[in-house]
Amino acid sequence: MIDIKDICKTFYVGETVIKAVDHASYHVDQGDVVVIIGPSGSGKSSFLRCLNMLEEIDSGKIVIDGVDLTDKKTNINKIRAEVGMVFQSFNLFPHKSVLENVMLAQKIVRKRSKTEAKEIGMKLLVKVGIEEKADAYPNQLSGGQKQRVAIARALAMNPKVMLFDEPTSALDPEMVGEVLDVMKSLAREGMTMVVVTHEMGFAREVADKVIMMDAGQILEVGDPEHFFTNPTHKRTQAFLSQII
């Protein structure tokens, strides 16, 4: 489904060179739920953002569903419509109502009619349990509600893959559950998901694979059980002992 070969992403901040992603390779199978963990600054976000070209990679190759992202002929907007993304800071459109947030890209990108977009939008709002707030504006919602709307907005494009970048990190603890529940049900429906999170409970419940990143590199890969019982690397052990 997603084939990542030896990708690099470097940032230049003044004199300093930051290798945010340093020769990372991985393969995500259709329907897999992959959880990425790792200390802050280890390149998890950069890695994820490369997958929908929010960051342009310096070298390497990414193929999603048979389409080569680095190919000049590839229409990047088409790919992005197939790859949903959920951000830590929600990034809902504040000038649009909840329903409009979910409808807008359907109309513009998918060229759906207003009625069709509305129907699909309402269905998804029901799915994430927030249909009663359809006419509210984002600033009238709690963090958990915002994130659920953001998930519905991404799902409205019928993506083949969903990327989540620490979707619960900005939430008050009592709201983490409601967002994870939506994500779990998505995972059970067979959605291909790449999730950066430190919620190890989520990883244990639905992840097929866990990736440990460190200094821009993929340090260790395994199923969740492996990480709970006998992680190989010292850095992984140290990291896990901090977050569990």
Binding site: N77, V83, G84, M85, S89, N91, F93, A105, V109
Partner: peptide
């Protein structure tokens, strides 16, 4: 906010 452009682009706009 920069996230607005990113959210819009990530939806395929």
């Amino acid at each position: 906010d920069k996230g607005q452009m990113e959210a819009a682009r990530s939806l395929g706009m």
